[in-house]
């Protein structure tokens, strides 16, 4: 079995949860790599969309920007941001696939500020399309490394909606019913969301990762079902395709 790093593991596990024939809007970096890998391994009919307007490209290599020319290279449609966002709003996009700086137990994401909004300690880029995609796509997938600074009881700023304050809160706010966070893939485990409370629930731990290590890397209580299976490690085939075809220049996987 080939050795792998945690970024490769996150990308491989995230890729496995994207179904063939579904539509996904991806951000640059790990989310895009996961979608490209899924397309080549388990979901050849996965339709990748980029918020700037590119749809169904034969991605020759990892885009640097979600609006660069690779995002519609040999694509089916070179549209507009409004068209992509409106497809999401119509209910035609299954997955939003995002990264994030800070996340809370309900899957609310912060990518705007650390500290007070008006005089922030650190200004981050802002929502971009993340709020839109997580508001409108059916399921929101997230990839992010797990530590107690990122997994916090309350985010400094809710840039992008998860389940907000719990069950029913999205619908009360006016977000489309039936939408919300689906999975968070971290470097330690795969997390889902409890149906009753809408709080994070551990679904799988990564090989060799203990419950204690996960608890120590989380700033709040995670729900632990009685039986938590261990994720299957990346296969040789997944790793080969990820390294040779998806990210040959190691822009993403080389950084781990």
């Amino acid at each position: 079995m080939t050795a792998y790093n945690t970024t490769e593991l996150m990308i491989c596990l995230a890729a496995r949860s994207l179904e063939d024939g579904s539509t996904v809007v991806v951000g640059t970096g790990a989310p895009c790599a996961a979608a490209m890998l899924a397309q080549r391994v388990s979901a050849p009919g996965l339709m990748i969309m980029f918020e700037a307007g590119g749809v169904g490209a034969k991605l020759p290599t990892m885009p640097i920007s979600v609006g660069d020319s690779r995002t519609f290279h040999l694509g089916l449609y070179a549209g507009s941001m409004a068209e992509i966002m409106e497809a999401c709003s119509r209910g035609m996009v299954d997955y939003a696939f995002l990264g994030g700086a800070q996340i809370d137990p309900y899957g609310n994401l912060n990518s705007t500020v650390i500290g007070d909004h008006d005089r922030p300690k650190t200004r981050l880029p802002g929502s971009g399309g993340a709020n839109d995609l997580a508001s409108l796509c059916w399921r929101t997938m997230m990839i992010m490394p797990q530590d107690a600074r990122r997994f916090v009881p309350r985010v400094d700023f809710v840039t992008t909606p998860g389940y907000l304050t719990g069950r029913g809160a999205r619908e009360r706010a006016g977000l489309p019913p039936g939408t919300g966070p689906h999975k968070v893939v971290t470097d330690l485990c795969v997390i889902g969301f409890d149906e009753e409370t809408c709080r994070m629930r551990v679904e799988r731990t990564h090989p060799g990762v203990t419950r204690e290590a996960i608890a120590a890397a989380t700033g709040f209580e995670l729900i632990w079902p009685d039986d938590v299976p261990v994720s299957e490690a990346p296969t040789d085939d997944e790793l080969r395709i990820l390294r040779d075809e998806v990210d040959p220049y190691r822009y993403i996987i080389g950084r781990a």
């Binding site: 941001m81 409004a82 992008t160």
Partner: peptide, 30 residues
């Protein structure tokens, strides 16, 4: 704002209407 919000704000202006309704940003600090 958000990316879609700004694109749609342009669209409202392009349509010559004062606002456009949408289903983003709701429930958030954004």
């Amino acid at each position: 704002w958000t990316n879609a919000a700004l694109a749609w704000r342009y669209r409202a202006a392009a349509m010559g209407i004062p606002f456009i309704p949408a289903r983003v940003m709701l429930g958030t600090d954004t």
